[in-house]
Every structure is written in C-alpha cells, then in structure tokens.
Nucleic acid binder design. Structure first.
Lengths: 191, 191
DNA sequence: CACTCGTTTGAGCGGTCGTTCAATATTAGC
DNA sequence: GCTAATATTGAACGACCGCTCAAACGAGTG
C-alpha cells in the first residue's frame, strides 16, 4: 500500500486531467484504467475506490491552484497578484486545460448528497482558496491599495464568486466572449 | 404521439425538477419512471430518448426563467427588474428549488462533447436569457438609469456572469454566505 | 356492445458500471 | 538463489444502465 511500483503523484495527475474534463459520474473506471495505465486491482489497492481516487485528484487540483496563486503573490503586489491569478485561471482554461471550468466548482455543481463526502471535500477546498484570497486582500489593505473600511472576507468571497462566474461564463460561450472586459468590470469596484 | 393520455407539460415539469436536482448523468430512467409515474414505453413514445426528455426540460426551465424576468420587467424599472430577477434566482435557490444552481449553467458544466446536442442547446438557451438582459439594459439606458456610453451587450454578459457566479458560490457555501452583500457588490459598478 | 387503433405496460435485452480476488509477477532480505 | 512479502494483473461478478416490443388496455365511434 505504502510503496507502490507506479508513481503515485503521476497517477493522480493523469486522473485529475480526466476527472476534470469529464466530471465524476461521466468518468468510468475503465476510462481511468486506460489513461493512468493501471489495472483495477492496482487502483483499488492504492486508492480504495473511485471516490478515494477522486478525492485525491480534488486535493491535487486545489494544491496546484494555491501554488499558482502563491507564485503570483511572490512577484506582484497583492491586488495585482489576485487579478493575475484570476486572469490566468480563466484564460488558460480556454485551451490546454481539460475543462473550461474550475474543477472544484464543477464538482460542487455536479455532486449531490449521494456523494456527501466528496461534495463536502470540494467545498472545503474552495474555502481554503478563499482564505488565501482573504489574506491577500488584507495585505492589499495594509499597503493602501484597497479601502481599509472594506471587509477583506467580503472582498475574498466576492472574488471567489467572480472567478466561478467567469469560468462558467467562459465555458458557456466557448471563450468567444470578451473575457478581458468582464474581468476588468469585475475588478472595477475594487481598484 | 401527439395525443398522450398523460399531461405532457406536467410530466416535463416533474422531470425538470429531478434533472435539475441530480443532473443529466446522475438521473436514471428508473428514477424518472418513479417521479413522473410512467413506464419506459410511454416515456420513449413521448420523448424518444433520455436526451429528448432532457432537452425539453431545459427548454421548460429556460421558459420559466424568461417568464419570471418578464414578470419583474412589467412592474419595475428595467435595472430594478434585473436586480430583482437575479436576487430571486439566487435566493429562492437556497430552499425550495431542486438545486442551488442554474440548471442551464449546471448542464453546461456537466456535459461534454459526448452529448454535443444537449450542450449546444443549453448554451443557446443561456444566450436567449442574455438577450433579454441586453434588451432591459438598453431600455435602462434610454430611461437614463444607466450610462449611455456603456455597451448594453457588455452589461448583459456581465450580469449573466454574475448570476452564474452567485448561484455557484451560493451552492458552494450552502447559502451561509452573505449573498445580499455579494449582489450589492455585483451591481455596484452599474447603478 | 363490439370493433378499432393509438397509448401504456413491464419483463427483459445487451451492455457497462464499480468492484473483487485468486493467480501471477516483482522486489527485498538473507 | 531461495524465500517471504508485496504489488499487479485481468477475468469475472452482481447490479444497474438506457432502451425495446409483444401484449394488454381504454377512449371514441357506429
């Protein structure tokens, strides 16, 4: 269980791509077997179930999102980092990435109480991203880039909501819409 | 085919509730058979396939959305009607309605090219709602409630994006978030 | 009431689903 | 190089999927 012959991280990455593209229900185990090149026994020995594997892909996705955000925060002022992160999230979603949607938002949209644990996990991971937003918003206030009378929490939830809306709208319009204008409008009330 | 013994509209309504709640893939025909109280033969005689029935539920959902919007537009100034519609869409979604999500946005998020026709239909219906937004935005400009140098098309797409984001965020937070504040923030740039 | 013809029924089809487990292959320790 | 321990394989399982169709039903007509 602990020392697998295959590269666990690599396996999760490949599974993430597939789940992200097709969603939980539309992805079959046989689909996964082909993509991650493992037979059912190995998958179940490593991850326990389809749900178990999916949970790890959610965490993988959330981690890489947080890393992207941190990368921008390291080289840009907080508010610019937030805008850069959101712009990147929405626009890179148009081409190379599996779906145009946020995988966590897509999961929250798809799942019901029939998969309560996965639904709760996706919500929890979204919250961790929002917390990172809150920290950056607070930092922006300290640096005077943002009104100090605004609640950083409220700004963070607003940005999270914008990100969800932007990705969903981008997908609904096949990226034909003027996304850049929409992002500018979204940030208009802040800067 | 044309004269069914069951109430076709009532059947579609019930199916809409179920599809809206669980999504296309997670809703089984046996599920539907129970809810709409028809046996498979009748369903296939009336709607042809699961996809055919789903398509009609999408149209049913879009129509009732457009009717709600028209209802508000009949008794309120254009901009207030838009805000009332969005507020209603997001807040009624918290309780009685099947999902907290917009059924069309949920469908666009869930489906892939494996169901290309349904995906295209959901996108098309979203666009019809956006067109209604555009008309109201233009009317608001004529009445001086909105800057005339803003493109009504751009305002409409912004509002559509906001609506998608609000519903998705509301679902992700179990409606615990301060949705009213978010709506105010969303409209802050307009009024 | 008998006949007609479109509607409804529901058992059941072929296929795919997530999952299991005995058999096999691979590695690590001596 | 043998053995014990562990990872991997893949055929197969029961359950459920979307869907079909011969048979039963029932409203309208004469």
């Amino acid at each position: 269980m602990s020392s697998a012959r295959h590269d666990r991280q690599e396996t999760i990455k490949k599974a993430t791509q597939l789940f992200w593209e097709k969603g939980f229900h539309a992805t079959s185990m046989r689909n996964l077997q082909d993509v991650i090149d493992l037979r059912p026994g190995s998958i179940y020995a490593s991850f326990g179930s389809k749900e178990g594997l999916f949970r790890e892909t959610l965490q993988c996705y959330a981690n890489s999102s947080l890393e992207r955000l941190a990368k921008h925060a390291a080289s840009l002022p907080p508010l610019d980092a937030l805008k850069a992160f959101i712009t990147e999230s929405v626009s890179t979603a148009k081409g190379s990435s599996p779906s145009d949607m946020c995988m966590l938002a897509k999961t929250v949209a798809e799942l019901t109480q029939d998969n309560a644990e996965l639904l709760a996990e996706a919500k929890r991971l979204l919250k961790t991203i929002e917390v990172a937003f809150t920290e950056l918003a607070a930092k922006a206030q300290q640096q005077g880039a943002l009104d100090k009378d605004k609640d950083p929490q409220r700004i963070a939830s607003f940005l999270q909501m914008q990100l969800m809306g932007l990705k969903a709208y981008s997908r609904a319009t096949d990226g034909k819409a003027n996304i850049k204008a929409l992002i500018d409008d979204a940030f208009a009330g802040l800067s």
